[in-house]
Nucleic acid binder design. Structure first.
Length: 424
RNA sequence: GUGGAUGUAGCUCAGUUGGCUAGAGCGCAGGAUUGUGGCUCCUGAGGCCGUGGGUUCAAGCCCCAUCAUCCACCCCA
C-alpha cells in the first residue's frame, strides 16, 4: 500500500463505529438530562488562544500542538483540548449577558503531537462538559458525578476518583515558594528532569514516577495543607456534596494537572485495568481562564473524557455495549426477469422501513442464501420464474426454515405482521 | 524527543544451522444440491516474506539502513 493514515490516527470502521454511535447517543441523552447543551466550536483556533489559555510552559503548548501557518500567515493550531475554545466562544458570543450559569457539552476530535501508545493518539476524541459562571462547589460535585454516571451507564463501576485542590491565585504562589524551597534543599536526590522543574514548574515534580524523587516528595509540603481559607472551604464543600451523592474519592495532594488554568478542584478518574495511560476522564475548576483570554472574571468547571480510553476500559472488562444487528429481509433473485420485479419490491419494502438487502454480485441462489444468513436476515424473500408466473413471492423464515408462497398484493401486510422492525 | 519489541495471505500465526514451485487454521469465492443458508466434504483465488541496499553459489532466515505498528518513558484524555 502506498498510503497509511498519518501516525497516531485511526480509521473507525464498522462494526466498531456502532459503539461510537451508541456512546454518543447515551451521552447526548444523559447530558441533556443534566441540562447541559451541546456546543460545537471550530477544530482549529488561533494559536495564541491555546498559548494564553493552557499556559506557555505546559507540555501541550511547548511540544504537543499541531501548529501551522495558514495562507495569510496567521498561526493556526488544531485544538488540543476543548475548554479554551468553549470559553472563547462564551466570551465572543457574549453569553455572559444571558441568565447564568451556562452549561455546555461537546464531543469531537482533539489533536496532540505525541508518540502514540496504548490509550494515546495524535487524533483522539473527547467528550466534555463545561459549567460556566458559577463558583458553587455543588457544581463541582455535579460535574464529577455526571462523568461517573456516564461511566455507569456503560456498566463501568470499577475505577478510582482522585481529588485534589490546587489552590487559587492567592494561595498557590505561596505554596509554590514553599515547595521550591523544599525541593531546592533536596535537589541532590532528584532526577535531572525534576532539577530543571524546580524553577520552571515545581508542581510537576509531584507526579514524577522516579523512585528517588518519590522518596523526596513523600515529605514535601502538601498543597492541601497550604490552602487559603476560601480554597479550604470550597474544597471541603465539594467533598461534602460528593458525600451526599455517595461518591467515593481519594484525596490525592500529588494530583497536579498539565494545564495551567486549573484552580481549586482538580480530579481524575483512573481505571487501573488500563495500563500506563489510565485516566479515563479528568478536569477541574478554571476560575482564571476567562480572565486570561478575555479579561473577564468568570469562573468555570468542567471535565473531558477520552472516548478511546472509555472504549479500552470497556474492552478490558469485556463489556459489550452493542449487539450485532441483523437485517429484516433479504431478497433472493433467480433469473434476470425476476431481478426487475425484485428491485421494485426492494424499494417498496425500504419505503416501509424494512431493513432490506439484495444481491449485487450475480450470485447463485445458494450463495444468496448464504449472504442472507451472514447478514442475519430474519426472512428471505425469494423471487424466481415460478413466483413471477404466480404473481407471488416465497418467503422463508431463516430461523425455522419454514416457507410460504405469498401473493405480491398481500406481501407488505404479511411482512408487517411477521417482522418486528427495528427490534432492540 | 528517548528506549524496547514486532513486521510472512483479508485475519491469527508456522517456517529447522541460509538450500527446490513459501505453509496452516480461520475468513473469502465456487461446487457437491440445474431454485434454498447454517453442518459436512471437495476445489479455488489470494504473497514483491514492510521497503532499499549488502554478504553468499543460494536470503523469509545473516548484516546495514529506512519506514510502519505496538509497548514504555515524558505527559495526559
Amino acid at each position: 500500500m502506498k498510503f497509511n493514515a498519518p501516525r497516531g490516527t485511526n480509521d473507525i470502521l464498522p462494526p466498531e463505529i456502532e459503539k461510537w454511535q451508541y456512546i454518543e447517543e447515551i451521552t447526548h441523552k444523559l447530558f441533556k438530562n443534566y441540562n447541559y447543551q451541546e456546543i460545537r466550536t471550530p477544530i482549529f483556533e488561533y494559536t495564541e488562544l491555546f498559548q494564553r489559555g493552557i499556559g506557555e510552559v505546559t507540555d501541550i503548548v511547548e511540544k504537543e500542538m499541531y501548529t501551522f501557518e495558514d495562507k495569510s500567515g496567521r498561526s493556526i493550531t488544531l485544538r488540543p483540548e476543548g475548554t479554551a475554545s468553549v470559553i472563547r466562544s462564551f466570551l465572543e458570543n457574549k453569553i455572559y449577558g444571558q441568565a447564568q450559569p451556562t452549561k455546555y457539552y461537546y464531543i469531537g476530535p482533539m489533536f496532540r503531537y505525541e508518540r502514540p501508545q496504548s490509550g494515546r493518539f495524535r487524533q483522539f476524541h473527547q467528550l466534555g462538559v463545561e459549567a460556566i459562571a458559577s463558583n458553587d462547589p455543588a457544581l463541582d460535585a455535579e460535574i464529577i458525578s455526571l462523568g461517573i454516571r456516564l461511566l455507569e451507564k456503560f456498566g463501568l463501576e470499577d475505577f478510582e476518583l482522585h481529588l485534589n485542590s490546587v489552590g487559587c491565585k492567592s494561595c498557590r504562589p505561596k505554596y509554590m515558594e514553599k515547595l521550591k524551597t523544599f525541593l531546592t534543599k533536596n535537589k541532590a536526590e532528584l532526577c535531572d528532569k525534576c532539577k530543571e522543574r524546580i524553577e520552571r514548574n515545581p508542581l510537576r515534580v509531584l507526579d514524577c514516577k522516579n523512585q528517588s524523587c518519590q522518596a523526596v516528595i513523600k515529605d514535601a509540603p502538601k498543597i492541601t495543607e497550604h490552602l487559603c481559607e476560601e480554597c479550604e472551604l470550597h474544597f471541603s464543600e465539594v467533598q461534602s456534596f460528593l458525600d451526599v451523592l455517595n461518591i467515593e474519592y481519594i484525596i490525592n495532594p500529588l494530583l497536579v494537572r498539565g494545564l495551567d488554568y486549573y484552580t481549586h478542584t482538580a480530579f481524575e478518574i483512573k481505571d487501573n485495568a488500563l495500563g500506563a495511560q489510565n485516566t479515563v476522564f479528568g478536569g477541574g475548576r478554571y476560575n482564571g481562564l476567562a480572565e486570561e483570554i478575555g479579561n473577564r472574571d468568570i469562573p468555570g468547571i468542567g471535565f473531558a473524557l477520552g472516548i478511546e480510553r472509555l472504549l479500552l476500559s470497556l474492552q478490558a472488562k469485556e463489556i459489550n455495549i452493542v449487539e450485532a444487528e441483523g437485517i429484516d429481509l433479504y431478497i433472493t433473485v433467480i433469473g434476470e426477469k425476476a431481478k426487475k420485479e425484485a428491485f421494485r419490491l426492494l424499494d417498496i419494502l425500504r419505503k416501509e422501513e424494512f431493513k432490506t438487502e439484495i444481491d449485487y454480485l450475480d450470485r447463485s441462489v445458494g450463495s444468496q442464501m448464504k449472504s442472507a444468513d451472514r447478514m442475519n436476515a430474519e426472512y428471505t424473500i425469494i423471487i424466481g420464474e415460478n413466483e413471477l408466473n404466480n404473481n407471488s413471492a416465497t418467503i422463508r423464515n431463516m430461523k425455522s426454515g419454514n416457507e410460504a408462497e405469498i401473493k405480491l398484493s398481500n406481501l407488505l401486510k404479511e411482512m408487517k405482521q411477521r417482522v418486528d422492525k427495528g427490534e432492540k
